[in-house]
Design a protein around this nucleic acid. Structure first.
Lengths: 363, 363
DNA sequence: ATTAGCACTTGACCTCAAAGAGTGCTAAAA
DNA sequence: TTTTAGCACTCTTTGAGGTCAAGTGCTAAT
């Protein structure tokens, strides 16, 4: 297939590499003069031109038009990539961060909001937005430990708001018989009702003390609890269906679109905008009614999602100012309503339970 | 604030509404003649022009330039939206679907892939892609039921691949004492090792028979199991960081960008492209090397994610053909490696366990 | 084999005029 | 007093023509 690769002279390789990298960098055709200046070549531009002409004949370069510089062809990129492919090496530094992020799971609310955003986008053909404001003061109301095998168990946590969280925990040593039962009793006794910052060293030490020879289980378990609780906190903004915006000529100016997206990335501005608008009902922000300047040509329809009276998120739709408000309003109302119903069902059941048998895991 | 709203004559309202809707539809300034033709107005264009002039003076309309039609101003949209806001009503038909989608949770693999895609995008400044191919033959290896309150319990399921799934189940009637224990025994006995399509009516009937007066628990529980198992199946494609593409002049042509995104939405083409390329290693598809025509100016770097020897997903980066291959290759390799390590840890632990004590939840 | 110099090609950019769309205004009609 | 018809006016859009700069290919000299 690519049989002539080895037949490239060293200088040709150097020139090809220089062209590819220059083009990657700048995006424009690169001329002989540019190469001369940006690489340490001991020859003139004419020589480079000759080599370039040959490289073009071989199929590695392409001229967009007669008097433009050269651009790498597919084969050119292919050669570059193939000769590069052995070179990359892991930078262990970044790997740690990757690992951390990968292991962080999505919370339940996150998932609902994400799905809602996706839904809103696909139903309206605009961009769906989901915002999770900074929540706080989550506590656990019940723990349950489920053995998976000798060295693994799952921790099931039920939060004060009734959400069920699962974490899988892996230990170095085999788990002694009965240790899980003991640990779960202990956690239900000591950790229920505590917010993340109330779990401190004395509590952990007491737990380790009580656990005896299975004390090694305490640290990872508590760490898990802590992670889950802090996972629930933290404001975030998700959007989906950006591609829909491209259909509208308002955003054919890539500049503006880029700015708008930048604003979305920033998050803070949108979060401000949303938190400014109080009330449970659906809101419509049109153009410069918002403090965000970039949104001059856009409109933003959104609705807070309440759970037990507290705002747990916002879902919405972002589109051109001339968006189909009728449809969007309907859709957001529907999705918001659906989520509210979901939460309401949970709430009613919990209240019913509180009235009948409170304090089953009491502290 | 908007005090003069009621002072609009009926005809003005009608015209304003027509202009807003025409503009929503077409995106261009709308002239008097157009309105005359597209609404059933019994007057001439001159009359409409007069009204439009007045509406403009009132601030509801705006002329981009002297000889263009009118475009609704912010106030115009505001008036339209406000007068519309009471009108939207729920179409209960769609609500059902919304509910269904909202309640579907993300699987663990999904979350990892999603995070990976996000990571890849933010680390490379191109578009991150995560693909979950059609998986199959998931079975459950253990069930555990955890009571939440009188009418709610959580079902913890451990799949054959070791993933932990949780579903919360809400019942109409209070759950009899001991019923959960019985049900969990029954499920562990009858459902372990079965794939989704092997759970059939006879099994369910036997379970209901065994459960006696708590038979009402069986149906929702089995349904849940089934949902979780089919949630794990099904190919899907996620991408994130589309906005990064806007930075590159290759995609400043909104047309092309739109087509490319359309291809991504289609999913099938990309799924084909990926499944065609076999092997564990990182792949680079440059431009028209791929069968997808739209990708002429683009390149796609991806790597399959294996778990226990089976491909469970693909992560990758999509960008302009002149992407920074060095960086992208490195990043994908890193993320892929991190995921592999995560899976490997799980695998090793499971194997260690299998050797020592297999069949703890045996059937 | 390399280099210097020059003619040549071609897209980018600017200007200008013609065309087209839609208005505002005025005067007549209802 | 309100509506309508007609017409001049304004402003964008489009395409043609012309200049400019970039970068090449080629030839002749080193």
């Amino acid at each position: 297939m690519a049989n002539e690769n080895p037949s490239l002279s060293e200088r040709k390789k150097l020139i090809l590499k220089a062209i590819v990298e220059a083009h990657i960098d700048g995006g424009e055709p690169v001329g002989s003069k540019y190469i001369l200046q940006n690489t340490l070549m001991s020859c003139s531009s004419a020589t480079i031109r000759n080599e370039m002409a040959e490289l073009e004949q071989m199929g590695y370069l392409v001229q967009p038009h007669t008097s433009a510089g050269r651009v790498p062809s597919e084969a050119g990129y292919r050669f570059y990539v193939d000769s590069l492919v052995e070179q990359y090496a892991k930078t262990t530094h970044e790997v740690v961060q990757i690992n951390h992020l990968l292991k962080a799971k999505m919370s339940e609310i996150d998932q609902i909001l994400e799905t809602a955003s996706r839904l809103a986008s696909s139903m309206t053909n605009y961009t769906g937005i989901a915002i999770k404001p900074k929540a706080s003061s989550v506590t656990m109301s019940k723990f349950e430990l489920v053995s998976i095998d000798k060295k693994q168990f799952a921790m099931v946590m039920i939060t004060s708001s009734g959400a069920v969280k699962t974490k899988k925990i892996t230990t170095d040593q085999p788990i002694p018989d009965g240790a899980l039962l003991k640990l779960s009793e202990l956690m239900n006794l000591l950790l229920c009702g505590l917010s993340a910052d109330m779990i401190n060293l004395p509590i952990i030490m007491e737990m380790e003390n009580e656990m005896g020879d299975a004390a090694f289980l305490v640290s990872p378990a508590v760490k898990c609890v802590w992670e889950v609780m802090s996972d629930i906190d933290g404001g975030e903004l998700r959007y989906s269906g950006l591609n829909h915006l491209l259909k509208y000529p308002e955003y054919s100016d890539t500049q503006q679109l880029g700015q708008l997206l930048g604003t979305l990335e920033d998050q803070d501005e949108i979060l401000d905008l949303v938190s400014e608008t109080e009330g449970d009902d659906i809101s419509v922000v049109i153009g410069s009614e918002s403090p965000v300047k970039v949104m001059n040509n856009s409109a933003f329809v959104f609705k807070p999602i309440k759970k037990n009276g507290r705002t747990v998120g916002v879902i919405g739709v972002l589109g051109p100012r001339r968006m189909n408000y009728r449809q969007v309003l309907k859709t957001i109302e529907e999705i918001g309503g659906s989520i509210a119903v979901m939460f309401d069902e949970e709430k009613q059941l919990k209240e019913g339970n509180n009235r009948k048998g409170d304090g089953d895991g009491g502290k």
